[in-house]
Every structure is written in structure tokens, then in C-alpha cells.
Simulated assay, not measured.
Amino acid sequence: MPPEPINSQSFKYFQDYLDQHKSRMKTDYQQRLAQDLSKQQWDGCFQRNVLAVLADTYTQSLAFLRSLPFQTGGMAVEQGMSVLTRQLLPIFDGFVDEFLLFAVDKHRTSCALSNFPDEHKPSHDYVNQVKREIAALWRDFALNANGFFLECP
């Protein structure tokens, strides 16, 4: 079978996986936040929990990606990046922004965090600091995914 139908189907499975994973991320975030609040660990809870959920998500997503069949024979590699990586990365467009909006909203509507202004209403600077750390997680995911595609037969 030519590589395109196999690769297209695998990307479809991955997209479906990611779409389903979004609700699990929200549930995971809520559980982590509730656990922090029950232990009175509110300082830095936005940053800690956002990064933990996204780190888990990228790890699980990479594992799922590796479980899918891909054929790379004859596929182009441009500047060290597989053409399949270029097809994968756009699947994540808006992914982090959507999750951050959810997390910020969760904090803003939390009565338990209302006495902790930095966590109750995360500032633009605080959110940007978290985004810089997310960028490192994303970079690692993208590099590992690219490595996977470059190693595929």
C-alpha cells in the first residue's frame, strides 16, 4: 500500500485522539487544582498544574503517535524536518491557547482562590511566563516527534 493512505489514516487517528484528550486535560487540571487547594498549596498552582497537565499530554501524545503506522520511504526531509512533522504540528494549532483559557477561567471563577490575587486572576506577565515554559515542552515534543518520523522505515 502506498504511504499516503496509511499516513493520512494515522494522522486522522491522531487528530481523533487529541480531540478526545482535550476533555481529559480539563478533568486532570481540575483534579490537580482541587488537590492543591485541599493541601493549601495555592502558591504557583496555575503554573505548576498547567505545566504538569501539558507535560503529561505531550508524553502521552508522543506515545500514541509512536503506536501508529507511518511510512516515510521516499518522504522529503527539509532542514532536518520530516515532511510528516510539518503535517503533524498544525494539528496542535490553538491547542495550548484553548487549554490556557480554560485554566485561567477556572482560576477566575474559583472562590477558594479569591484570597490569592496572583492565582485568582493570573496576570498577563504570569501567563506569559507559563507560556515560555510551555514552549520548552512543545519544542521537546516536536523534536521527539520529528525524530520518530526520521527513524520510521
Rank of each mutant, 00 (worst) to 15 (best):
I134K: 00
G80P: 04
Q129L: 14
T109H: 15
P122D: 07
V127C: 05
N128A: 10
E133S: 11
Q60T: 06
A135N: 05
H107K: 11
I91D: 02
Q47I: 02
T85M: 05
S110G: 11
W138K: 07
D105F: 07
Q79A: 14
R108A: 13
T109I: 00
R48L: 09
L89G: 00
Q129M: 13
V127I: 15
T72S: 14
T85H: 08
P69Q: 11
Q79L: 09
L137V: 08
H124D: 12
Q87R: 15
A63N: 11
Q47E: 15
L88Q: 00
R48G: 10
P90R: 03
E78T: 13
I91S: 04
V104D: 01
P122F: 06
M75N: 06
F46I: 08
D125Q: 09
Y58G: 06
L101N: 15
S114V: 11
L137I: 09
R66V: 04
G74T: 08
R108M: 15
Y58T: 06
E78G: 00
F64C: 03
D118A: 13
Y58R: 08
V77A: 03
V77G: 03
R139W: 02
L54Y: 14
L65Y: 12
Q87S: 12
Q60M: 07
M75R: 10
D105Q: 14
F64S: 01
F46Y: 15
F116E: 13
F70E: 02
N115L: 13
Q60H: 12
L54V: 11
Q87P: 00
A136M: 06
Q71R: 14
R132Q: 12
L137S: 07
G94A: 02
G73K: 13
L84P: 01
K131Y: 10
A63M: 05
V83I: 09
I91A: 09
L100I: 14
F102S: 02
Q60Y: 08
K106I: 07
A55L: 05
V83C: 06
S114W: 09
E133N: 10
F64Y: 15
A103I: 01
N49S: 09
F116M: 12
T57D: 10
L68M: 11
D125G: 04
A103Q: 00
L62F: 14
P69D: 10
Q129N: 15
K106L: 11
F102K: 02
E78D: 10
E78F: 05
D105E: 14
H107L: 04
K131C: 12
A63V: 11
A135V: 02
L68N: 10
T109R: 15
R108P: 07
F95T: 02
L54G: 03
E133I: 00
A103S: 04
L51D: 04
T109L: 11
L68T: 08
